[in-house]
Design a protein around this nucleic acid. Sequence first.
DNA 1: AAGATGACGCCCG
DNA 2: CCGGGCGCCATCT
Length: 96
Amino acid sequence: MVRCIRALPAGTVSSYGAIAKAAGWPGAARQVVRILQQVPGLPWHRVVGSGGAIKLTGENAAEQRFRLRMEGVTFRGARVDMKRHEFRFKRARSLK
DNA sequence: AAGATGACGCCCG
DNA sequence: CCGGGCGCCATCT
């Protein structure tokens, strides 16, 4: 789980659900959120909601958009252009 | 032990 | 596009 998140290359993004599934825990999207909050040093800004939606609120949301644009990520309105930046995991499966 | 909570996700009207 | 409802999982009351 944590490894999947850490494996996200700059300029790419993934969704909470996708990460959970790639880690072998389909449906544990909420767990991913918990990890992002507990484990420091993770590329949290590269994790968005399904369809590329920013799930943060207020200042934090702006912060995330900023960082992503910094890495060259483009947006389609309010959502991230998944068509081009969504990261495709391999057969990962691991522990947190 | 039961209920509430959250940076979620999917389906339906 | 916008809610509303329900399922998910780990934590915290």
